[in-house]
Design a protein around this nucleic acid. Structure first.
Length: 891
RNA sequence: AGGCCCGUAGCUCAGUUGGUUAGAGCGCUACGUUGACAUCGUAGAGGUCAGCGGUUCGAAUCCGCUCGGGCCUACCA
């Protein structure tokens, strides 16, 4: 493919003149993607004299398949990047992938299971080898999928969260936080996933409402015949009870203060403790306390210095401390057994149905076991304060801003983050232990050895929560902690696009980490997208079988149609229902672009694209389309800036289809065919087309490049590619409200003439003659000048400026009195009914308008232009009423 | 339990700081092979803006309540 015009060819290699009637996205899309990559158009500069624009991709799971949500985010990020690049920014869209700890490890473990082995059997080293093999096998996967969508990423800067440089950043961050005392190791209650065999963070716990039971158990009171009843949903935890709590002001139980209960089956003495956390209204108002298996009991245990007993182990089975009878039993099995024994021994009072909330492991799916475990924690309270301040003082904008409240709530109630995971795939915690148990945190084993004074060290076997490395993504990808050129050029980044489902998992932590380590908000704006749902608004899921695969959609409709659909559905604060009919609609839009270009190329003769055009000397239709083009370009800019991709896309869509194709192309025909020549029509047609394609390029990169390359003279805009051509903006000298008003009147006359024909049931080929008489002399001149257009578009034999003759159908539109003289036919009943109905509605409306204009308060308080608008509207409605009556033969 | 969002045409959704004629796409009806496009064109039908009350000259838009749907957060055993 050459960039010179004489041998302009397209990506598909066809000659410009050989445009097929049907457009076929597959024939050029990937050819362009490949060519753009070869030419290095998307490689950002560093350093650069241009202003920077930078977006970090939310790194998809390295072994994953992109879903429609990714496609949406890709479309938006690419749109923004291409737009800014065309505007002359040094635009960087940095791609990459995430190692996704648990998710990826589970996939490989599943595979090992099929092979009849396990990670434990393989051992850590060999297991990690398998993980890397798996990772490398899929390394190219994400890139291929992004290429399909036309993503203009700078792949020379692609990153993976386990890259050496990113791992170094992770260790550095960990060590810094440790030295500041913000990271520490301790025994606390954590959310334990028995199925995964690891602790998880609060965010990885999904609360589900389940139908359960409430067991009432009688506990004897020490030294008396009295028995008190406690209620629990988890009777198996009674084996770990160490106290019974009551509300200090509960008068029913004042006599129990200072006494103790005896734990059934076990015989342990349980002191009564008074605590205001007890709800007197719930159950019996007495609560059994199991400090090591319930978060609130853990808190209460600390308040009252109660010992804890671990009766459930990390494998979800009862421990030896649960007693020989129960040890080794699965926790749910143990529940049944405990209840049986309580019943046998007469301690079970009753069992009630009880709906309650139970935390489930997001990845493992099973109920979380709260247990006490030695883990690493990160105190994020200080960072959270900074993140809150950044949002409050405007350094960080969430779009839509309705997320501010959620942000506020989560960050003000944040608790320490459990960052250690009992997994193998991930960043191993940079802490080393001596044989006598001393701990050294350092950025490397050597450094730790130096500090410890011995190299007989064992590194902590645990890895960090995946999100710990993700939190550093905006700067670890640019070389932090080193002061690199990339870091100085692109950090802080410009904007983040991601789903609201990971606002806390990722966005909040990036903001906290960014403020903590770089002192800056990593991005000024976060655009939170909705969830992509199916056509019925149902969440896509494999089990429901309603998942749409972006690759298949691209195959069926082309990437441009998919991108346009997704971008135009992205309305703030809403989920996105996606259905194929819509995508088909935007593919039709692509077809429209294709054919409009085909028309232009076949009719413009020797005309060429102009860098700009002086409207002086042009006829009204040309001045009109230039004016409209300038205004649309002006409307797009603020909408892209504000992340209103839906509005920007809709404006571009309607400009191209409505203004350009429906009207301007039609208006150009009589001129281009020589029936009614006007100056420089071909140039205007090509120049408008060029700019329209450039305006659309960020949304539909492939088709616009394919078509733009065929425009004669496009090289004056850019020698090689539309990707680097300038993005059109407003052109004030093109704008003319007068011309727009005049042409608007002309178009309304045309439309009304057509409706009159239809209303009168005139056959398409029957002769009709049009009479026009404009109140505004300027409009009158324009109509007279463009009479050939009225003839052509209105399908009338003649157009006469002047009063409406007897026998013609009269009407008034946009201040123009029109008359249509036709061979009258008998009006059909249906048509008659329709007109009668319209007359009825119109009469009612006139009534309302008269009433309003007769209201003194309205006239006094409403702005003058509203009153004036009401008056002229009323006048027009009366005219139309007269015309309708005439058509119906009424007085 | 608390917070947030939503209820507009058959469907999916827009609707800027209230302005009187509530829009789009798809679908539907009639007509149309007019010199790019039937993945099209022309002309249409279709809505008491969930309901009730309030503020206002004027409410889809602002306020309150009710009903209906969704999401997030939360240790009531």
């Amino acid at each position: 493919m050459s960039a010179t015009s004489s041998e302009t060819k397209t990506a598909a290699g066809t000659e410009a003149s050989e445009m097929d009637k049907r457009f076929e996205p597959k024939s050029y899309e990937q050819a362009w993607q490949q060519r753009w990559a070869e030419k290095g158009y998307f490689r950002a500069e560093a350093p650069s004299a241009k202003p920077s624009y930078c977006i970090m991709i939310p790194p998809p799971n390295v072994t994953g398949k992109l879903h429609v949500g990714h496609a949406l985010q890709t479309a938006l990020q690419d749109l923004l990047t291409r737009w800014r690049r065309m505007q002359g920014y040094n635009a960087l869209w940095l791609p990459g992938t995430d190692h996704a700890g648990i998710a990826t490890q589970l996939m490989v473990e599943r595979q090992l299971g099929v092979e009849g082995t396990s990670r434990r059997e393989l051992g850590r080293e060999r297991f990690l080898e398998r993980m890397w093999q798996w990772t490398e096998q899929y390394a190219d996967n994400i890139r291929q999928q992004l290429d399909l969508l036309g993503a203009s990423c700078d792949w020379t800067r692609g990153r993976f969260t386990l890259d050496a440089s990113l791992s170094r950043a992770v260790r550095e961050a960990f060590v810094r936080l440790y030295r500041e005392g913000l990271i520490s190791r301790g025994e606390y209650m954590v959310n334990w996933s028995p199925a995964l065999g690891t602790a998880v963070s609060d965010l990885e716990v999904e609360t589900k409402t389940v139908q359960g039971k409430l067991y009432h158990i009688a506990y004897p009171v020490e030294g008396s015949e009295e028995r008190i009843a406690v209620a629990t949903t988890r009777p198996e935890t009674m084996l770990g009870d160490t106290a019974v709590a009551l509300h200090p002001e509960d008068e029913r139980y004042t006599h129990l203060h200072g006494k103790a209960a005896i734990l059934p089956l076990v015989g342990r003495r349980l002191p009564f403790v008074a605590d205001t956390a007890v709800d007197r209204e719930f159950g019996t108002g007495l609560v059994k306390i199991t400090p090591f298996h319930d978060p609130s009991d853990f808190e209460m245990g600390r308040r009252h210095n109660l010992p804890g007993i671990s009766v459930i182990g990390p494998d979800g089975r009862m421990t030896a401390e649960a007693g020989t009878e129960f040890a080794g039993l699965d926790r749910f099995e143990a529940r049944k057994r405990v209840v049986e024994r309580l019943r046998d021994e007469g301690y079970l009072v009753k069992i009630e149905d009880h709906v309650h909330n139970v935390g489930h492991s997001q990845r493992g799916g099973e109920p979380i076991e709260p247990l006490v475990s030695l883990q690493w924690f990160c105190d994020v309270s200080g960072m959270a304060e900074k993140a809150l301040a950044a949002n409050r003082d405007g350094r960080l904008t969430l779009v839509p801003e309705s997320w501010d409240k959620t942000w506020e709530h989560w960050l003000t109630t944040i608790r320490p983050w459990c960052i250690s995971r009992q997994l193998w795939w991930g960043h191993q915690i940079p802490a080393w232990y001596t044989e006598d148990g001393r701990c050294f945190v350092a950025t490397s084993a050597e450094e730790a050895a130096q500090e410890a004074g011995t190299d007989r060290l064992t590194q902590d076997p645990d890895v960090l929560d995946t999100w710990f490395s993700s939190a550093l993504w905006p700067f670890s990808t640019l070389g932090w902690p080193d002061d690199t050129v990339d870091y100085r050029t692109f950090y802080p980044t410009s904007l983040l696009v991601t789903g609201h489902d990971i606002l806390f998992f990722w966005v909040a932590r990036m903001v906290m980490a960014g403020l903590c380590f770089t002192g800056e908000v990593p991005f000024a704006t976060v655009h939170l997208t909705g969830l992509v749902r199916d056509a019925e608004g149902v969440k896509m899921s494999k089990t429901k079988g309603n998942v749409l695969d972006p690759a298949e959609l691209v195959e069926e409709f082309g990437a441009d149609a998919v991108r346009f659909t997704l971008a135009s559905l992205d309305s703030p604060g809403r989920d996105i229902p996606l259905n194929k009919d819509q995508i088909a609609g935007y593919r039709a839009f692509g077809n429209k672009l294709w054919n409009a270009t085909r028309f232009a190329l076949s009719r413009v003769g020797e005309a060429r694209v102009q860098e700009t055009i002086d409207p002086a000397g042009l006829a009204a239709p040309e001045r009109w389309i230039l004016s409209r083009l300038s205004r649309v370009a002006a409307e797009v800019e603020p909408r892209f800036t504000a992340c209103r991709f839906d509005e920007a896309c809709n404006r571009l869509y309607h400009f191209f289809w409505g203004d350009f194709c429906d009207w301007y192309v039609e208006l150009s025909k009589p001129a281009l065919m020589g029936d009614a020549p006007r100056p420089r029509v071909g140039e205007v047609l090509l120049t408008v087309l060029d700019r329209a394609l450039r305006l659309l390029h960020p949304v539909m990169p492939f088709l616009t490049e394919e078509l733009w390359q065929r425009l004669p003279g496009h090289e004056v805009i850019h020698a090689e590619t539309i990707c680097l051509a300038s993005y059109p903006g407003r052109e004030p000298s093109w704008e003319s409200p007068e011309v727009e008003a005049g042409m608007d009147a002309l178009m309304q006359v045309v439309t009304r003439a057509r409706s009159l024909r239809a209303e009168l049931g005139v056959a398409p080929k029957a002769r009709a003659d049009l009479f026009v008489s404009a109140a505004d002399p300027a409009v009158g001149r324009l109509l007279a000048e463009q009479a050939p257009l009225l003839r052509f578009l209105g399908r009338v034999a003649t157009v006469t400026a002047g009063p409406v003759p007897e026998g013609a159908v009269r009407d008034l539109v946009a201040g123009v009195e029109i008359g249509l003289l036709v061979e009258r036919q008998e009006m059909g009943e249906e048509e008659r009914g329709r007109l009668a109905k319209e007359l009825e509605k119109l009469t009612a409306e006139i009534g309302r308008a008269e009433e309003r204009l007769g209201n003194a308060a309205f006239l006094a308080k409403a702005p003058p232009q509203v009153v004036e608008g009401g008056r002229s509207r009323l006048a027009e409605m009366r005219e139309r009423q007269t015309a309708l009556r005439a058509s119906l033969g009424l007085p």
